[in-house]
Design a protein around this nucleic acid. Structure first.
Length: 900
DNA sequence: ACTGATACGTA
DNA sequence: CGTACGTATCAGTG
C-alpha cells in the first residue's frame, strides 16, 4: 500500500461549517431546499481532492440517536442549539451527491464519524498509506502522526495542514497528548466541562511536568494553589473527559480498502442531481476535477484527444473546405450576430474525424471568403451550429451571404427538449450531453457577443468540433421524444424566416416619432408641475417609494394593496383612490384628487414618451427598426421580441395608436398589411375540448361572445347587453389562464358570488370545456408535462409540489400552455407557409413582424390582392381543426392604418 | 455595474 | 388568488 493516499472526511462537520460560511439565501432551489452546506461541502471535497490526489476516499457521517458516549455520559454533546431548519435535508443530499460522484460514505450505529475516521486512519497507517483527515472537530488532532495529517478547514476555504509539529506548535503538546490536554481544558462543543481555572497554558505546563494525564492524576496531591484544589475536585470529570474524547481506533467496521477506491463520477446522475439542486458552475468542475466512471471517461478523453486543430494561414480555409466537401461540419463563429450588425472575427470549422481549422477574419484570402460563402449558401453542405440565427447575421454582415444547410441548431434542439430554460449556453450543453469540458475561452466570445479577438484558438476549434457529437445526442433525444418534426419541420426552417425578417426590419417615419416626443414630453412636464403644485413640493413621480410617502403620509390616503415593500401605487389602485376622494368635499381631498389625476396623467405620458424615445433610438441608418425575435425564450413556444420589443407597441389607446403611425412601408413598397387570427385561443379551446356547442358556434360564424353570453344567461344572443357580453368575454379568455372566481370578481368588480354563479352557469352550458381543463391538469400531473397539437412539451414538476401556491401556479400554467403553445405552433406553421408561398408566387411583398396571433407585412406595389389571398389561405389552412381558422386582414399606409 | 422590485406595454 | 413576454426606472448592493 505504499504510495497510496487515503482521504477521510467528516461529512457532517464539513457541511455544517460550509452552512455557516456561505449565505444561505444565495443557495436555494426553487423548491425551497437550501443547498449552501452541500455547495460548500462539494467545494471542500474538490479542494481536498486537488491537494491530496487520493487513491482512496471515505466520508464518515454521524447517525442521529445515541452513541456509546451518550450511554456513559448523557450530557455528551448536549446543550447544543437545534439544527437550523435550513440545514435540514442537506446531509442526505450530500450523501446522494457522493453516490453520484462514486465516493464511499460510511455510517455506523452507536459510533461517531470521528471514530470511523480514527479506525480507518489507523488501518491505513498500518497498511503503509499516507492518510489525510479533514474535519472541523479538534478531537482528530489526536490522530496526527508521521503518516496521518489533518487538514483543518479555515475561513476563505483555506486548509491548515496539521502535522505533528504544527499540532505541537498550536496546542503546546504533541498529538498523542492532545486528548490529555483537552480532558483538562474541556471541550465546549461536546459539552465536556474542563477543570475550572485551568486553561491551555496550565494544562500544558502540567503535561510537561508529569508527562501526561496519568502522571498528573498520580501526582494530583502535589499540585498546589487554587488550581490544584480545582483539579482534585474535578478529577472524575477529567477522567470521564479523557474516556470520551478518545477516538476509537478499533471499532467494528467491515470496510475493505478496495471499496474506498473512488468508483468514478456517474455523469448522468450528477446532471440529474445538480439540476434539482440548481448547481451550474459546480457541475463542470466536478466533471473536470474528479475521475469519471469508466464508460463516461472513455468518451471524454477520446473526444478531446482526437481533435487536431490548425490555425489557418491565408488560403487554408478554402483548401480545408474543399477537402471536407460533402461532410457534415461543425461551425463556430466568434464575433457579433445581431441584425444588420453582424461581424465575424473568427471562424472555426471541424469535421467529425477530428480535423479542425480556426481562421482569423483578417487572415482570410479572397479565395477563402469565396469558398466560405459558397459553402455557407450551399444547402447541401450540412452545418451544425449553435444559435444559427446569430451566425446567419454574422455571415450576412461580414460577407453578405446567407447561411443555409443548417442540419442542426443545437440551441433550438436544446429548447425543444427543455423549453423552460432561459438560455442555452453551449458550454453547459457540451458538458451536459457530451461530457466534455472545453478549454477556456473569453466569456464574451461564447455567444457571438463581443469578442476579445485573437488568441483563443483552442476554444473555438474545440467548440466547433464538440458541436457534432452534441448534435447527435440532442437529435437522438428529440427523436426519442417524437419531436423531430417540430425541430426540423418547424423551428429550424423558421430560424431562417426570422433571420430575414430581422434583417429586413420595418421602416420608421422618424418625423412622427419626433412630433410625438415633443407632444408627450410637454404633457409629462405639465403633469409633473401640476402634481408638484398640488402637494407643494417636488417629488420623483417615478419612484414608488417616494410616492408612498406623499400618498399615505402627507395626503393621508387609505392604504392600498400591499406589495413586498409597502403599498402599491399602480394605476388601478390610484384610480380607486381617486374615486374614493370624489365623494369627499374637503380641501385636502381636492388636493389629493388633483395630485392623483396629475400622477396618472404623468404615468401615461411618460410611458408614451419613453416608448417613442426607445423606438427613435433603435432606428438604424437604413431608416428601419430591426428587432430580434427570440426563438428559445418563451416556455410555451411563443416567440418574443427584443431590442426593441415590437410585440408590445401601444395598441389600445388613441394616443398609443399614434405611435403605430410611425411604422410605414419603406421605399419601393406601398402599404402595410396586418393579418391576425380571430380568437385563435378560443377556437383551440373548442377544438381541444370537443365541446359541441362551442364548435357549432364557430362553424356558424356567430359572434362568439354574444353567443356564449346568450347561452350562459339563457337568452337570445341578440338580446345580450354589452355589459353581459363583456363579462362573458373576460371569463372566456380568463378560463384559458386558469382564472378563479376570485380573480374574475376582482377584474369585473362584481361580487364573488356573482362571479362564481357566472362560472357555474358557463360550465353548465359548456361542460366539455370544464372536463377538458380538468383533464389537461390531470394528464400533466400524471405525465409531468403538457403537450401542444405539435407535441411541444412543457414540463411542470411543481404540479406535485407540497406548496399550495406553487402547485396552483403550475396548474394555471398547465391550463394555459397547450392553448397558448398550440396557437404559437399554428402561427409558426403559417409563417413558413406564407414565406414559401410569397416566394413561389414571385411576390416582392414580405413578412416583417409577428405579434403572436398577427403577421405584419410590407406590400409591394400592385401586390395587395394577391398577397391578401395568399396569406389568408396559408394562415387559415395551417392546421386542420374541428373549427375553422379565420383571419382578419387590414391594409393601410401605416401599421395603425392597417388595423381592422 | 449589477440585481430585485415595481410598474406597464402587448397577445 | 389569470398565462406568456420585455423594458424603464428606482433603490439597494458590490
Amino acid at each position: 500500500m505504499v504510495n497510496q493516499r487515503l482521504l477521510l472526511l467528516d461529512g457532517h462537520s464539513l457541511a455544517f461549517r460550509s452552512f455557516f460560511a456561505l449565505p444561505k439565501d444565495s443557495f436555494r432551489t426553487d423548491q425551497g431546499q437550501y443547498t449552501n452546506g452541500i455547495h460548500g461541502f462539494i467545494n471542500t471535497l474538490l479542494k481536498l481532492y486537488a491537494d491530496v490526489k487520493p487513491t482512496h476516499v471515505a466520508v464518515a457521517f454521524d447517525l442521529s440517536g445515541g452513541t456509546f458516549r451518550t450511554k456513559e455520559y448523557a450530557a455528551y454533546k448536549g446543550g447544543r442549539a437545534d439544527t437550523p431548519e435550513e440545514f435540514e435535508g442537506q446531509i442526505p443530499l450530500i450523501q446522494e451527491v457522493l453516490d453520484a460522484l462514486g465516493i464511499e460514505w460510511i455510517t455506523k450505529d452507536q459510533f461517531e464519524a470521528d471514530d470511523i475516521i480514527a479506525t480507518l486512519a489507523d488501518r491505513g497507517e498500518k497498511a503503509g498509506m499516507k492518510v489525510v483527515v479533514s474535519s472541523g472537530d479538534k478531537d482528530v488532532y489526536q490522530l496526527v502522526s508521521d503518516a496521518v495529517t489533518v487538514l483543518y478547514p479555515m475561513p476563505r476555504s483555506q486548509m491548515l495542514e496539521m502535522t505533528p509539529d504544527v499540532v505541537k506548535e498550536r496546542t503546546g503538546v504533541p498529538p498523542e497528548l492532545y486528548s490529555d490536554l483537552a480532558a483538562l481544558v474541556g471541550e465546549k462543543a461536546d459539552n465536556l466541562p474542563g477543570v475550572p481555572g485551568v486553561g491551555a497554558k496550565t494544562a500544558q505546563k502540567w503535561i510537561d511536568t508529569y508527562g501526561g494525564l496519568e502522571g498528573i492524576i498520580e501526582h494530583a496531591d502535589e499540585i498546589g494553589g487554587k488550581v490544584g484544589d480545582s483539579l482534585r475536585e474535578n478529577l472524575e470529570q477529567v477522567k470521564l473527559n479523557r474516556r470520551l474524547n478518545e477516538l476509537l481506533r478499533d471499532m467494528p467496521l467491515e470496510v475493505d480498502f478496495d471499496e474506498l477506491k473512488p468508483r468514478g463520477v456517474d455523469r448522468e446522475a450528477v446532471h440529474q442531481l445538480f439540476d434539482t439542486l440548481d448547481f451550474t458552475s459546480l457541475r463542470g468542475r466536478v466533471l473536470a476535477e474528479l475521475p469519471l466512471a469508466e464508460g463516461d471517461s472513455e468518451m471524454a478523453s477520446e473526444s478531446l484527444a482526437g481533435l487536431e486543430a490548425v490555425t489557418a494561414a491565408p488560403g487554408d480555409l478554402a483548401a480545408w473546405l474543399a477537402a471536407h466537401a460533402s461532410e457534415r461540419l461543425g461551425l463556430f463563429l466568434v464575433g457579433r450576430g445581431q441584425p444588420r450588425r453582424g461581424d465575424i472575427e473568427m471562424i472555426a470549422v471541424a469535421s467529425s474525424s477530428g480535423d479542425a481549422l480556426v481562421a482569423d477574419r483578417v487572415d482570410l484570402s479572397e479565395e477563402d471568403v469565396r469558398a466560405f460563402t459558397t459553402w455557407c449558401e450551399d444547402s447541401e453542405a450540412i452545418k451544425v451550429v449553435h444559435e444559427a440565427k446569430a451566425a446567419w447575421h454574422a455571415i450576412k454582415g461580414s460577407f453578405d451571404a446567407e447561411l443555409a444547410g443548417v442540419g442542426v441548431d443545437t440551441e433550438l434542439a436544446a429548447y425543444i427538449l427543455h423549453p423552460d430554460q432561459r438560455s442555452y449556453d453551449l458550454n453547459d450543453l457540451i458538458v451536459r450531453h457530451v461530457g466534455m469540458v472545453l478549454p477556456d475561452m473569453a466569456a464574451d466570445e461564447l455567444d457571438l457577443g463581443l469578442s476579445l479577438g485573437g488568441g483563443a484558438v483552442d476554444g473555438p476549434a474545440a467548440r466547433a468540433w464538440a458541436l457534432l457529437p452534441l448534435a447527435d445526442v440532442l437529435e437522438r433525444e428529440v427523436d426519442a421524444r417524437g419531436s423531430t418534426e417540430l425541430l426540423h419541420g418547424i423551428e429550424r426552417p423558421l430560424m431562417t424566416v426570422l433571420a430575414r425578417m430581422e434583417h429586413v426590419g420595418i421602416a420608421a417615419d422618424t418625423a412622427v416619432f419626433d412630433d410625438l416626443h415633443k407632444e408627450f414630453d410637454s404633457r409629462v412636464t405639465r403633469a409633473a408641475e401640476s402634481a408638484y403644485a398640488a402637494i407643494g413640493h417636488e417629488v420623483n413621480l417615478s419612484s414608488p417609494k417616494q410616492l408612498q410617502v406623499v400618498l399615505f403620509d402627507e395626503l393621508g390616503l387609505p392604504p392600498t394593496r400591499k406589495t413586498k415593500s409597502g403599498y402599491t401605487t399602480n394605476a388601478e389602485a390610484l384610480t380607486d383612490l381617486f374615486t374614493q376622494l370624489a365623494l369627499r368635499e374637503d380641501d385636502r381631498a381636492a388636493a389629493g384628487r388633483e395630485f392623483l389625476g396629475q400622477l396618472l396623467e404623468h404615468r401615461d405620458a411618460i410611458k408614451l414618451k419613453q416608448s417613442v424615445e426607445g423606438l427613435s433610438k433603435s432606428v438604424l441608418d437604413d431608416g428601419r427598426i430591426h428587432t430580434s425575435f427570440q426563438q428559445t425564450v418563451a416556455a410555451t413556444g411563443r416567440l418574443s421580441s427584443t431590442e426593441p420589443n415590437l410585440q408590445n407597441i401601444h395598441a389600445r389607446t388613441e394616443e398609443g395608436q399614434r405611435i403605430r403611425e410611425a411604422f410605414v412601408p419603406g421605399d419601393g413598397y406601398e402599404s402595410i398589411m396586418t393579418v391576425d387570427y380571430s380568437q385563435i385561443e378560443m377556437r383551440l379551446m373548442a377544438h381541444q375540448s370537443g365541446d359541441a356547442a362551442l364548435i357549432q358556434a364557430f362553424i356558424d360564424g356567430e359572434d362568439l361572445h354574444s353567443y356564449v353570453a346568450g347561452r350562459v344567461y339563457g337568452i337570445d344572443p341578440t338580446e345580450v347587453s354589452p355589459a353581459q357580453r363583456n363579462k362573458i368575454k373576460a371569463m372566456s379568455y380568463g378560463l384559458a389562464y386558469g382564472l378563479s372566481a376570485f380573480g374574475l370578481s376582482r377584474q369585473l368588480r362584481i361580487e364573488r358570488s356573482e362571479a362564481q354563479q357566472l362560472m357555474n352557469d358557463y360550465f353548465e352550458r359548456f361542460g366539455a370545456v370544464r372536463n377538458y381543463l380538468e383533464s389537461v391538469v390531470a394528464q400533466a400531473r400524471r405525465d409531468g408535462y403538457t403537450s401542444t397539437i405539435l407535441g411541444r412539451r412543457r414540463y411542470l414538476p411543481d404540479l406535485t409540489s407540497d406548496n399550495r401556491q406553487r402547485r396552483e401556479a403550475a396548474e394555471r400554467m398547465a391550463l394555459n400552455a397547450p392553448i397558448q403553445g398550440s396557437a404559437a405552433d399554428i402561427i409558426k406553421i403559417a409563417m413558413l407557409g406564407v414565406d414559401r408561398a410569397l416566394t413561389v408566387e414571385g411576390l416582392a411583398s414580405r413578412v416583417l413582424l409577428q405579434v403572436h396571433d398577427e403577421l405584419v407585412l410590407e406590400i409591394a406595389s400592385g401586390e395587395e390582392e394577391k398577397v391578401r389571398r395568399v396569406v389568408t389561405q396559408q394562415m387559415e389552412s395551417a392546421v386542420d381543426l374541428s373549427v375553422p381558422l379565420s383571419v382578419g386582414v387590414g391594409v393601410g399606409p401605416s401599421w395603425r392604418a392597417a388595423a381592422h
